[in-house]
Design a binder for these strands. Sequence first.
DNA 1: AAAAAACGAGAGCACCGCTCTTGACGACTG
DNA 2: CAGTCGTCAAGAGCGGTGCTCTCGTTTTTT
Lengths: 232, 232
Amino acid sequence: MTASRTARERVRAELTREIADIARRQLATEGAGGLSLRAVAREMGMVSSAIYRYFPSRDDLLTTLIIDGYNALGEAVERADAACSPDDYLGRWLVACHAVRDWAVAHPHEYALLYGSPVPGYHAPQDTVSARVRDVAVYGRILSEAYHAGALTPPPPAPAPPPAAVAETAVIGELMPGVPGDVLLRCVTAWTGLYGWINFEVFGQFENTIEDRRAVFDHSARLLAGMMGLAQ
Amino acid sequence: MTASRTARERVRAELTREIADIARRQLATEGAGGLSLRAVAREMGMVSSAIYRYFPSRDDLLTTLIIDGYNALGEAVERADAACSPDDYLGRWLVACHAVRDWAVAHPHEYALLYGSPVPGYHAPQDTVSARVRDVAVYGRILSEAYHAGALTPPPPAPAPPPAAVAETAVIGELMPGVPGDVLLRCVTAWTGLYGWINFEVFGQFENTIEDRRAVFDHSARLLAGMMGLAQ
DNA sequence: AAAAAACGAGAGCACCGCTCTTGACGACTG
DNA sequence: CAGTCGTCAAGAGCGGTGCTCTCGTTTTTT
């Protein structure tokens, strides 16, 4: 029973995976807008309606690609951080920054799906949240550990954040327990600054403006670290 | 001759403008992907093929919307800066930051067209560059004036930028003549950080995370100003 | 062995961007 | 004034899309 049922389920899982793989390849070459269920079906030798046995809609296919993308990016950052010496917090921060950027440059269309303009009809299901925070969780871990080790101390001049802003750090603070609000606000600023930089690069804003982007990015990551007060 | 010809040209210009207006309205409600030439034609009471008398393709229509968007954003920032007292550089910086954010929040889809994932087949024509730098030119002016007034001095600790990174600031430096490379790199970092923050907000990354976004944004803008060394 | 569920194929619907042809209208010229 | 030419809106049509429905076939379950 289980064996026969697994036979059926196995081929189904295999085909589901194959559809997602082909779709990911098309996404990588054509971008999200060029992803076509019919093209995927053609490449699989199926008729287009057969795809709907495996993915109820194009949006659902996109959703699995998004989840896979979050996991791939998160894993890349996790692996990069795992290779660092744990108490070199600035080094870990820089390595994590470059890990995100390297992945984004290598997979621009997938990155755009994660951090670019949201796709029109798409609303993130709840089961994406665990995958979606994997990359930022690494940053949270690095900075949280740095703070508790005394290696993350906001440098003067320290403009006192208004209480309204501090109150907004509650959700972010769950990733970094014990870190006070003013430090969290600096981390958020560095976090958005980091991804903003990558967005500019991946989305072509640096065209004809900055060419050796890795060098400038590295310096920007160091400046953001300095803004947070992340010591060497 | 000129009169009759202008009569002809006038109605043509009028229709061209009306098409663009309807397209902009659809863009605002549906997003770039939902912009349909046929829908625009329907709303104008025309048949779809007639639109092609005025815009040779959907991409060309998008191009004019993009140029209009850059101009609208640039004008918003320019007007905001013009209302400031010229030697309050920190105030001008903050006002400009909020001007960009306010415009982006008010026109999310248009902003996504400018600073989000690039549209698939679209390549920016050369005539967009003058409009595209209007917003950043304001920042360049503010920070350049601040520097020459002695109000923009990078605070310690100042990590020395590698020469490779400094060399990349040449194009950016054209907007801010006389400003040295290390300061320019800080400005670029603040610039990307600012737009990264807005991207996160407009693209929904702060959903269920940060609610009072204006307050947090304001503080982030101040932190970025401090990173640059922009004095009160 | 019979009933039920899953599956692939095919036709079809409404929509899209875009092209081509046709007929009408207005503006220049002999 | 008459004729010609260019501009325009309309319509049909092509290939593409996401998606639905039906219909035999196959596989699993009862």
